[in-house]
Amino acid sequence: MTELIENLLDGDHRALARTITKIEDRAPGYRDLVSQLHEHTGQADVIGITGSPGAGKSTLVDKMAEEYRDRGLTVGVIAIDPSSPFTGGAVLGDRIRMASNTGDMDVFFRSMSARGSLGGLSTATTDAVKALDAFGKDKVIIETVGAGQNEVDIVRMADTVAVLVPPASGDDVQMLKAGILEIADLFAVNKADLDGANRTVQELREMIEMRRDELAVATGHHGAVEKTSPGGGGADEETDDEPSWSPSIVETVAKRGEGLGELLSILDDHREYLVSSGQLESKARDRYAAEIRTLLREDSAELLAEEIEARGGIEGFVDRVLDRETDPYAVADDLLDPVVECVESKRD
């Protein structure tokens, strides 16, 4: 085992920080590091927090971390901010909100930027979560702006996903329809002391019920669907044996910590539901399957890029395609065939 990982497992903060840097940079040898981490993971409860800019994510995460610390739990936070697609630079501002936990090293807060790499961010985030998990953090919180596929992918890695919605955000609720509704285990209508909170709660409730009806029709379980109880629900008492989960709605004022207790208890309920329903394991299976596929896709793409270079570069092939000597499909077959042959001959 490398010294860095040994130190990390020993609880050295610097080693943890450096490991995450290597993961982010995809520095030489980072894969070995992550491999070594794997056997020490699987203990942390991973929570994803997402929502539109200004919804109050960082403030809420700060309060959550404080409360978990009061309960004697250790916390890791990964806050992801966008980076400039032009310079790659970024101002990572989430840390400013972490006012309640300054000086407490047992809250490990790390800012990450999207670094504009396609898909790479979710790999880096997965691996950084592993580092925090192996380090021994009880709760790992991933915080990200919920816009676009990339972020949805990231948040999906969490066991439990909370979506923050500011009041009177008709448009944001519209946005939620495009993919985020499906991944939310819990909605927090934050800044609930502002006008329009009730309406937002109402709109969310309607959306959730509409979705439940759709699901019920799709699966043929008409009778099994119950309405969410007022004030959010949690795990449903269903007539079926299978426990199921319908997203709860909670009103919070993150700045003052209002609604925080309810939010955390719903997060705990969801965790319990995941364990009792077997969802935790099936989620982990899905996640590892996706991870293996992603790695293979990246690795084989790299392998083929090398092969293209070895055969004189992509431009040569493009020239022949332009001259109608060959076509893209034929080129792809041509490049892939030796690989396929090689794989087939080595399979056993």
Partner: peptide
């Protein structure tokens, strides 16, 4: 940021430990 660095800003009035 414009030079392509990733910048974390601490905010005001931070103690050395922070």
């Amino acid at each position: 940021r414009d030079a392509g660095f990733e910048v974390i800003y601490s905010g005001l009035h931070k103690a050395p430990e922070e």
